[in-house]
Computed example of a mutant assay.
Amino acid sequence: MTAHKSNGEQNSSRPPPVLERKSENKRAKEETSRTRKRVKRYSLVLPEELYTTIQELADDRGTTVLEIFRRFIKLGLIAAELENDPNKSLIIREGDKEREIILI
């Protein structure tokens, strides 16, 4: 129950809940606005089989599909950077076998 002063005013120790919610909503909108300036959205359509494989990988690693995509993109950017330098190459080693990866 809210304490009331004798003249009918509410206790001023806490703002009324309605004002509190408006303030929270305003802060949330400001934060969303700032976030939009720092990130970009991209929709991606995948075959179900490929998505399932990525979901299983994420589950096995205890992470999300989104995080797996971020890691793949970072790895792809490293590979693309290596491709631009003729003195660098991307090598996959499996035991004593090596394969050079060439991006198309």
Rank of each mutant, 00 (worst) to 15 (best):
D60I: 05
L19D: 13
T35Q: 14
S89N: 10
A28S: 09
N25Q: 10
R21W: 01
V65I: 05
L19T: 06
D60F: 10
E20W: 10
K97S: 07
V45Y: 05
A28W: 07
G62Q: 00
A58N: 02
E56G: 11
E94Y: 14
G8S: 01
R93A: 03
L77R: 15
E24Q: 15
R34K: 14
T64P: 03
V18K: 15
R61N: 06
I102F: 09
R27V: 02
E30T: 10
F69I: 04
R71T: 07
R34N: 09
I102W: 07
Y51P: 02
I101E: 01
K5H: 11
T64R: 01
I78M: 08
T2I: 15
R99G: 00
G8F: 01
N87P: 03
I92N: 09
P47H: 03
L57F: 10
Q10G: 11
R14S: 11
R14W: 08
R70T: 03
L50D: 05
R36V: 06
R14P: 00
R38N: 08
E98F: 07
I104S: 12
G62P: 02
S89E: 13
P47Q: 05
K26M: 06
R27L: 05
R38Q: 07
F69N: 00
A58G: 02
Q55T: 05
L103T: 01
S33F: 09
V45P: 02
R34V: 02
L46M: 09
D59F: 11
I102T: 11
L19C: 06
F72S: 12
S43V: 02
T52W: 06
R27I: 00
P47C: 00
L103R: 04
E20A: 14
E24D: 08
A3V: 13
T2K: 15
R34H: 06
E9S: 10
E94T: 14
E48I: 07
R14N: 11
L19H: 12
P16G: 12
V18H: 15
I104T: 12
S43E: 02
P16V: 11
P15T: 04
E30R: 15
R38T: 04
T53C: 08
R99W: 10
K74T: 05
R27Q: 08
N11P: 06
A3M: 14
I68K: 01
I68M: 03
S6F: 12
E30G: 06
P16R: 14
P17Y: 03
Q55S: 13
L103F: 00
P17W: 02
L66V: 13
I54E: 01
I73L: 07
A79K: 09
R36I: 05
R71E: 12
L82N: 12
K88D: 01
L57A: 12
S43L: 02
E83I: 00
K88I: 00
K40Y: 00
I78D: 05
R71D: 07
F69G: 01
E24M: 07
Y51M: 06
R41C: 04
L57I: 14
V18A: 15
L75N: 09
K88G: 00
P15H: 06
L19E: 14
D96S: 13
S13Q: 14
G8R: 04
R27H: 06
L82C: 15
N11H: 08
M1R: 06
K40R: 14
R36H: 13
Q55D: 15
T53Q: 13
K22G: 06
A58R: 00
S89I: 03
N87V: 04
K40P: 00
I102E: 13
E30D: 09
D59S: 12
S13H: 13
R38L: 11
N87T: 15
K37V: 04
